[in-house]
Amino acid sequence: MKRAIMLVTAALLMTTSTGVFAEQTQADRNECLLLSRNCKDQVDDIYTRMQRLEREIQKGTRVYTPKELRQLQEKLAETQEMLKDMEKPGR
């Protein structure tokens, strides 16, 4: 009887901890960089933006879907291109 109770308790703990893990990875997403949401007074210079994008990309598929990772990579490429344009002589 005690063994059955322990097994049921362990099973419940495993199912609830899996949900918590999924919530943590969702919370780890940077919606401001990805979707331009939740950007409360967040103003970055171009170098900080590039660093933040690189950090988010490094989180990989444990936090982002492959489609979202492509979006972040595209935003990083756009940001790098903007920096190149600003650094061109004559600007």
Rank of each mutant, 00 (worst) to 15 (best):
K67V: 07
D85I: 11
A11E: 11
R55Q: 14
T65S: 15
L35I: 01
T9W: 01
E87L: 11
V20S: 03
D44S: 12
L72K: 02
E68H: 07
K40T: 14
A10G: 13
M14L: 13
M82W: 10
D45Y: 03
Q26C: 08
T25Y: 03
K40R: 11
T48N: 10
R37Q: 09
L53D: 09
E23D: 05
N38C: 03
D28H: 01
T61C: 10
N38Q: 08
G90I: 09
K84W: 00
A27N: 04
M1A: 05
E74C: 09
Q51F: 15
L83V: 13
T16Q: 03
L69G: 07
Q71S: 09
A10R: 01
M50Y: 06
K84G: 06
T16L: 07
R91W: 02
T48H: 05
L7W: 00
T79F: 11
M82H: 10
V63I: 13
E23F: 00
P66D: 05
D44R: 10
A22Q: 06
K40P: 05
E23V: 00
K75D: 15
T18P: 01
T65G: 14
D45V: 03
T61N: 13
K75G: 15
D85M: 04
R29W: 06
L69V: 06
E68I: 00
T65H: 05
T48A: 10
R3Y: 00
R29S: 10
M1P: 00
T25G: 09
T16R: 02
R62A: 14
R52P: 14
E68T: 01
E68C: 07
R70G: 13
R91C: 03
L76F: 09
T65D: 15
K59V: 05
Y64I: 07
Q80C: 03
Y64A: 10
L13T: 12
T15R: 00
R70D: 14
L53F: 11
Q42N: 10
M14R: 00
Y64G: 07
L13N: 03
V8R: 02
A27V: 00
Q80E: 14
V8I: 09
R3L: 01
L7F: 02
I5A: 08
E56Q: 12
P89W: 11
A22S: 04
Q71Y: 09
S17C: 08
M14A: 11
T48S: 10
E68S: 11
D85E: 09
R3W: 00
L34F: 07
F21N: 13
T61E: 15
E74I: 09
L76P: 07
A4H: 05
G60F: 15
L35G: 02
R29N: 10
F21P: 15
E68W: 02
L76W: 08
R37S: 05
Q51V: 05
I5E: 03
Q58M: 10
M6Q: 04
R70Y: 06
R52E: 13
G60A: 14
L13I: 14
L12D: 08
G19L: 03
E87W: 07
R91Q: 04
D28G: 05
F21L: 10
T25A: 13
D41M: 10
Q42K: 04
S36M: 08
A10N: 02
R49N: 14
R55A: 10
K59P: 01
M1D: 08
